[in-house]
Amino acid sequence: MIDEQLQVLSSVVASQTKLHRRFGGVVPEVASRAHVQQILPVIDEALRLAATRLEDLAAISVVTHPGLVGSLLVGLTAAKSLAMLLGIPLVPVNHIEAHIYACRMQAARDVFPAIGLVVSGGHTNLYDCPEPIGFELLGSTIDDAAGEAFDKVAAILGLDYPGGPAIQRAAAAGNPKAFRFPRSFLREAQRLEFSFSGLKTAVLYEVAGTPPAEYDRKALAPQYVADLAASFQEAVVDVLIAKCRQALAARGRKALCVGGGVVANTRFRERLATLAAEDGIEVFIPPLSLCTDNAAMSAVAWELLHRGQTAGLDLDVAAGLVRKR
């Protein structure tokens, strides 16, 4: 629930509430049946926390892409029903673009034009964002997302899941220059794409040899793991920062909006601060609650609503990312 001044009146994430416990352990987005069971309680809870009634709503926003068709359809059907019953506009939102808009919410002032980077378990996307809506995708990962690389390298190193915090903890005691890992497309300024699969495989080769042999993940020496984690993390951050710089230069932008769960990484934050200071760039980072997946960042719906970008009840989901419709 977000008001027109972009204040979050309430934000409910089903997987973080007691509603979710009954489905404990399930990869949440798989369970469209669980979505069906949870969507009404989540809406009720959001209304209750915001002390608002359904009748007071001005519009309903809903994510139509990207995501799993089954899960998206549950949300879309609920949103359409509410829009029809209440006679209010239905506003379709792109989930990844909403991650960038979270920066606008946090800043409480205009942050555009900007370059946007969304970096999470499922996405590593760079956008040019001339305005609050209508972002141009400059490039994305051609294989693994950055967050996915953290998880998989954590698995290779025998560290916990999720890999982001585990790698960061291990890296704290490690030497980021201990291993020279690949940094894909680092010097190809025109190529605003990412590739983290080769980096993941390079870590595996270092640990298990080439071709990889069986090894005991739990028997790796702590300092070895720390050095590998630090060197891996530095390689990922080097690439993320370099591609932001290249995109900023290519489009002549002076602001950078970053979103997605990988923003929680402290080394990445340090390097973003350095970039801001060295290049004279304004860097916007939302609070963690708006970085991980949430509905509040759909506040971008107000921008769409003001521009008349609403949808009819024949609105459909688009599961793919850059699918032409």
Binding site: G122, H123, S140, T141, I142, D143, D144, A145, G147, L321
Partner: peptide
């Protein structure tokens, strides 16, 4: 398939390409 659409589905679980 548009090469920009193809990537690992580990997190999203399934990708659809045309």
């Amino acid at each position: 398939v548009d090469r920009r659409e193809i990537r690992s589905p580990t997190f999203v679980l399934v990708h659809e390409y045309e």
